[in-house]
Design a protein around this nucleic acid. Structure first.
Lengths: 201, 201
DNA sequence: CAAAAGTAAATAAACGTTTACTTATTAAAT
DNA sequence: ATTTAATAAGTAAACGTTTATTTACTTTTG
């Protein structure tokens, strides 16, 4: 029995990610993907049931999985509030700056009904990934360190800005000067932390 | 000379918005649009040069224009910082809750290279829309009320969370209970304001 | 009756997917 | 050790459908 060529599987994934990041999801066709990956269209169908299956698996494996892993690197739920939040902010910033295609696909995931659905399903099933963050926030809430709001609201307040700043970072790549750097990320993060904190007096 | 039927022009726009909001941008085809709007495909091409032209004009007129108008309603750049920011937050929340299709298309605009480009071009050309917000933030920065950061960074910190909360609002429509309401928006807004403010002591 | 608005039907290209076939590899048989 | 048979991996070319857009024609008005 002929063994499968792992290089071809990888070529499919990396080529697909490149097309999506550079030309947009709407310009990813199975035939184009096959051509650019130097394989036959049929080969894609050996690994993936159809285009939808490809996109969903690509999205889950290449985006959500590696994103969550990167975000939680060196994060520990026992950390102090400011320390933990800043660690996640810097992880998010560094990961996306180094993986623009993941950021682009992540943005698509928020608008495309198909990917959005798979995102939500995965988020529920693989909730353990963000569970440390959940417990981290819960603990600091219980200890009276931060404002008592539902987890989803706290998450929005704490992490929506850094994603928007990453977006600004990429948009400023085409402009004369970059205004988003690590120092600015840290400054911004401190603002957000200050807003969430309850003064202990 | 036969006059153009304004109803047909409107049918094109409203039908296109409906398809995008309900079935996604990827399911909007010119033929489908024509069929559902009860017109001939050729009629679309009398008003729009091609599909790209249609999408860009739709996006600019139906989304950016009305969004910016709604956001600045009853906002005055002479307002106090907290008052002005909260006004915008509530405007954003109420507008999108009442116009889900605009929110969906807005999200598309952030990921689709085509729409994203038109968004940026429009943002520069029609910068007068957000100019009041720009001056509002500049003034409060100069008066030492809020942290001194570039406009884009201040905008990200102040307004990214409310868009994320609107997203949460729509996702919670399919769940047993809604956690996002006006009161929660106001609470969240106060957190963000507190983070930006410089204590006057 | 001039002329733009509008239509139905057709165009070529691109789409996702499949068919019919070849190739490469392993495990069993020699 | 060599050959053979089985079989999944892989390919090239095609499938029918849908796509954006156009052609050739009709309708409606000033």
């Amino acid at each position: 029995m002929r063994p499968k060529n792992i290089e071809k599987e990888e070529a499919i994934r990396t080529t697909a990610m490149r097309i999506i990041a550079e030309e947009g999801l709407e310009n990813l066709s199975m035939q184009k993907l096959a051509k650019e990956a130097n394989i036959s269209p049929r080969t894609i169908y050996l690994k993936y049931e159809n285009k939808e299956d490809l996109l969903v698996k690509l999205f889950i494996d290449e985006v959500i999985g590696s994103y969550e892993a990167a975000v939680l690197q060196d994060f520990n739920e026992a950390m102090g509030f400011a320390e933990g939040v800043q660690k996640i902010w810097l992880n998010v910033f560094h990961y996306f700056v180094a993986n623009r295609s993941a950021f682009v696909l992540m943005q698509y995931g928020k608008s495309s009904p198909l990917l959005n659905q798979s995102f939500q399903e995965k988020n529920i099933k693989e909730g353990q990934f963000f569970a440390p963050v959940h417990r981290f926030l819960k603990r600091h809430t219980q200890e009276g360190m931060i404002v008592n709001l539902p987890f989803e609201v706290q998450r929005a307040l704490l992490f929506a800005p850094v994603l928007e700043l990453v977006n600004e970072y990429f948009e400023h790549l085409n402009r004369p000067q970059q205004i988003i750097n690590e120092e600015r990320i840290i400054q911004s993060c401190q603002s957000v932390i200050k807003g969430m904190r309850i003064p202990n007096d």
